[in-house]
Design a binder for these strands. Structure first.
Lengths: 154, 154
DNA sequence: GGAGATGCATAAAGACTTAATATAAATGCT
DNA sequence: AGCATTTATATTAAGTCTTTATGCATCTCC
């Protein structure tokens, strides 16, 4: 199947990619602004993957180490994360989500999902059905996206 | 059809919304950082809708008027936009995309689309087919998203 | 005509980021 | 074992981006 993939399919990925790009870039403008996107993304990463080093988080989120160091300090002061030392390496700080942090991630995700759901509810039934059928593909894309940046779950 | 929509469909919009939320929030971490997201979004808005007032752009992009005023000045200095007065109202500055600005939007969009396409190319054929079938729905969602913020094209 | 509203520029302050730097700990080579 | 090199992280300074506050010009409406 993969061998005989025609060029038309490669055109399809560009067209689909275009639709997803438009959707994503516009959706990001609606995200809450109570904290920076990097902060929110970091919390979501911790929620997904569990505790991480500061340097790992910096790489995953695409910022410098000092930025992540400061970000973690601010979020620690806000009670959203806590620091733990790593017994196997005294240099290392492991960043862990607190219950308040996990709660924040859930609420933020819920609000974001609801916003999408509101739009989807305005679609005709056949379009909703098509999206439902495409759900595994969308989830697969999201998973590929994460794995590329986060690597396997530790 | 709409009359008899069962509750299961409303659960579907939440599930689909969840997948789209995960995808969008992770994709945003990969966007180029040569300018702020607000700047890039503003250029894209101008590309889509044509010239706009500074106050309109501020509302559309969810920032304050002074932020947009400064942003426009910086982008004007970079040659990405130009200002035009409005003959019918001397207070008004219309912000217009330059050719360089339009070019930048295209290149940035192209890069974003390519990144998605790269992921999509790693999906099995049946998932790609499902996404292709869902394309009208995705485009419809993107359109709804824009209209909610931008109103009709002027 | 004048009060009130609107559009936008400017300044100050705060948040978020990068680059530079310093210290401690770990690793690897001889 | 000793030491050079690398790695992890905190801190500082500077630049960018945003909000709040303010001021001036223009428009609208009574």
């Amino acid at each position: 199947m993969r061998m005989g993939r025609p060029d038309a399919a490669s055109g399809a990925s560009t067209t689909i990619g275009s639709a997803l790009y438009e959707l994503a870039t516009r959706a990001v403008r609606r995200l809450p602004r109570d904290m920076s996107l990097t902060s929110a993304a970091t919390l979501a990463t911790l929620d997904r993957t569990g505790p991480r080093r500061i340097t790992e988080l910096a790489v995953i989120e695409g910022v410098t180490q000092p930025a992540m160091s400061v970000l973690v300090r601010v979020m620690e002061e806000s009670g959203l994360v806590e620091r733990r030392s790593d017994t196997s390496d005294k240099r290392v700080t492991l960043v862990c989500l607190t219950e308040a942090g996990a709660s924040y991630v859930r609420e933020r995700r819920q609000a974001g999902v609801q916003a999408y759901a509101g739009l989807i509810d305005r679609l005709p039934g056949d379009e909703i059905e098509a999206l439902t059928a495409a759900l595994p593909a969308l989830l697969h894309l999201a998973a590929l996206e994460s794995q590329d940046r986060e690597g396997p779950k530790p």
